[in-house]
Design a protein around this nucleic acid. Structure first.
Lengths: 223, 223
DNA sequence: TTGCGTTAAGTGACATTGTCACTGAAGAGT
DNA sequence: ACTCTTCAGTGACAATGTCACTTAACGCAA
């Protein structure tokens, strides 16, 4: 079933209590775009010229070093907007972050002129954009805090718990976890082996089982 | 000589090409605030309820860990706005960054309702705010990149060059430099002693002389 | 099923950075 | 000259990052 701008506008109106007349404006000027899981949505060599609002799926925004290391900055969930592209567009500065579709993704793009006009005319739309910016700023503060001051074992425990929420099986390679945290695979291996020795987890190739969540939580909160 | 809202509006109009009618709006609703050098402008326990635009001076925005370490996120210069407070206000989330007046500071505050209205009515004002957000987002990307992937000696060399721009004498304690970079004093001492052995700098208590800028630049660019 | 190629994970040595508990040194004020 | 306070130095150790490998697990095809 094909997603339409109307579908999104509907859900957007629902979650954001936008005035009904916003709908018509959006319907005329927005366009639907799709990405397959794993595709790059934006990146240094792929700077979009319109604003993006995520309708379905999840986008992982990460930054990578020239040495090949990588760190996840945040994730854009359905209903949110991707302000980094907006930021880049508006300030016309370079950045070296990229967005990868973590699932199949459907998004709505709004040309810059439409964005400007909507931001001018609709309070709730403008509020949505401002608060999207704010949330990301605060996300980044958290990342800085973690990276600058946090211990790696604590951060890893946090991620494991987050990834294993609801269940206890995590499908992720050590390399993938290292890319989440901005560290090296060897470091993750070291810490996970330690966790295993302590009975906190079980490991098989590409899969981790959380064995003792309470203890992991204690560790994760011992920031 | 006392600064007035008019003074600021004048310079703001100048730098931002705002429409002239913005002036009147600002004149009625903005208020001037001042801080002495070293005073906290905002912080976790001191969340402002209005938006701030810096007229004179410089604000250092930093984040600190509970272990007492500290890292500078960016600096707000005259003519810029302090979006972090805005972000916090709009999203009503907690953060643990603080702003310190690095010089005597004069700023203009705008109540939230005025901010909303101006953002709605004046394109250039809105554009100013959006691009302020964008700049900070990108600043933070840079910080994340540095902290996650950068070498400490390289980062320190960068700072020294930045602080010694135009001259070659820097007045800063090792502790202060550590707080810039989010590391420990001992680490800075170690690296500076190494720099000195290599003839890149000279040190006396509380003061560093850049002896060999070209070499420092090579180091700083060997990211 | 056996072998092969690919990807994931383990290992040990070493470099860098962070932490701790100190000691020593330089300047400010009396 | 004698304190006080602040700044910087030191050595041992822990945590993290890097490198150059080796070993193991799985997917697939002969």
């Amino acid at each position: 079933m094909k997603t339409t701008v109307g579908d999104w506008t509907e859900s957007f109106l629902g979650t954001r209590n936008l005035l009904r007349r916003v709908r018509d404006k959006l319907l005329h000027e927005a366009r639907v775009v799709s990405y397959k899981q794993g595709q790059q949505v934006f990146g240094p060599d792929n700077i979009p010229d319109s604003l993006m609002f995520l309708h379905v799926g999840r986008i992982r925004v990460s930054q990578s070093s020239d040495a090949g290391r990588e760190i996840v900055l945040y994730r854009v969930e359905a209903g949110e907007s991707c302000v980094l592209t907006t930021a880049c567009m508006l300030s016309e500065e370079a950045y070296n972050a990229e967005g990868i579709a973590e699932t199949d993704v459907t998004a709505i793009t709004l040309p810059r002129t439409s964005f400007d006009r909507l931001a001018a005319e609709e309070d709730s739309f403008r509020g949505f954009v401002f608060s999207a910016y704010s949330r990301r700023l605060i996300d980044l503060l958290r990342v800085v805090d973690d990276v600058a001051f946090g211990r790696m074992d604590v951060r890893l425990a946090e991620r494991l718990l987050a990834l294993g929420e609801g269940h206890s099986e995590i499908q992720a390679t050590h390399q993938a976890l290292a890319n989440e945290l901005g560290t090296a695979r060897e470091v993750v291996s070291r810490i996970l082996n330690d966790f295993q020795k302590r009975g906190l987890i079980l490991q098989t190739r590409g899969r981790i089982t959380l064995q003792n969540k309470p203890q992991l939580e204690i560790l994760a909160n011992s920031a």
